Amino acid sequence: MKLIIMRHGQASWSAPSDSLRPLTKAGREEVRKTVGQLKGEGIDRIVASPYLRAQQTAAIASDILGVSVDTLDGITPDDSPAKAIGQLPEQGNVLVVSHMPLVSALTGLLCEGVPYGGPGFATANAAVLDLELPAAGLATLQKMLPA
């Protein structure tokens, strides 16, 4: 299976709470650019954090890729990467839309077996991982896609 871990696009700081920060115009454009590069990955499912900016990122990806979006409550910025792994689908090619620091920690845990040392993610960056099933240390990082 492939697991593509993507950080949401650039978001505004002007919002009543962190969970309600919307994408900026530039953020929507950088998401379109990254998702355009993911067209050949065979993505058949998208899972996203419930935060507005992740939902908006996932909606853009859904429109471009023609696949549905499911919301996972346990993939917000401060959630545990170990618990997040337990919520991920175990088959298919899945795009996961979330936040820093979780995207970095999750990538580190899946590839290296530890939640630190994962790659840095600018907004709308994506890590394409190859793995048999989501578990610590079992993934291989195929590539990082810049925004």
Results as ranks from 00 to 15, higher is better:
99 H>W: 08
36 G>M: 09
69 V>D: 03
100 M>N: 15
59 A>H: 03
26 A>Q: 15
133 L>N: 06
135 A>P: 10
21 R>V: 05
32 R>D: 08
95 L>H: 11
42 G>R: 01
98 S>Y: 01
82 A>Y: 11
85 I>Y: 05
41 E>I: 03
47 V>Y: 10
51 Y>D: 07
96 V>Q: 14
50 P>C: 00
47 V>N: 10
94 V>T: 11
13 W>N: 09
92 G>S: 13
93 N>Y: 02
38 L>H: 04
23 L>I: 08
20 L>H: 11
66 G>I: 00
121 F>P: 01
117 G>F: 11
110 L>W: 08
64 I>A: 02
134 P>R: 05
110 L>A: 01
10 Q>L: 14
18 D>E: 03
103 V>N: 11
54 A>C: 06
113 G>W: 01
17 S>M: 09
97 V>N: 12
113 G>C: 10
7 R>K: 15
87 Q>M: 13
135 A>F: 01
125 N>W: 15
102 L>E: 12
94 V>S: 04
38 L>I: 11
66 G>L: 04
118 G>E: 10
81 P>G: 01
72 L>K: 06
54 A>V: 02
8 H>W: 15
35 V>E: 10
48 A>N: 01
107 T>R: 02
64 I>F: 00
36 G>P: 03
22 P>S: 09
63 D>C: 01
40 G>T: 01
7 R>L: 13
79 D>G: 07
11 A>T: 04
119 P>H: 13
121 F>W: 02
70 D>M: 10
79 D>V: 03
96 V>T: 07
48 A>V: 01
58 A>C: 02
14 S>H: 11
131 L>Q: 06
128 V>T: 06
122 A>R: 15
113 G>E: 01
23 L>R: 06
83 K>N: 07
136 A>G: 00
13 W>Y: 14
122 A>C: 13
60 I>C: 02
46 I>W: 09
84 A>H: 07
71 T>V: 14
100 M>W: 12
7 R>H: 13
39 K>W: 00
51 Y>N: 11
10 Q>Y: 06
23 L>P: 09
58 A>V: 00
102 L>K: 10
72 L>Y: 02
17 S>V: 06
46 I>Q: 08
129 L>P: 15
8 H>K: 11
21 R>K: 12
107 T>G: 07
89 P>S: 03
65 L>P: 00
42 G>P: 05
87 Q>F: 00
95 L>Y: 10
17 S>I: 12
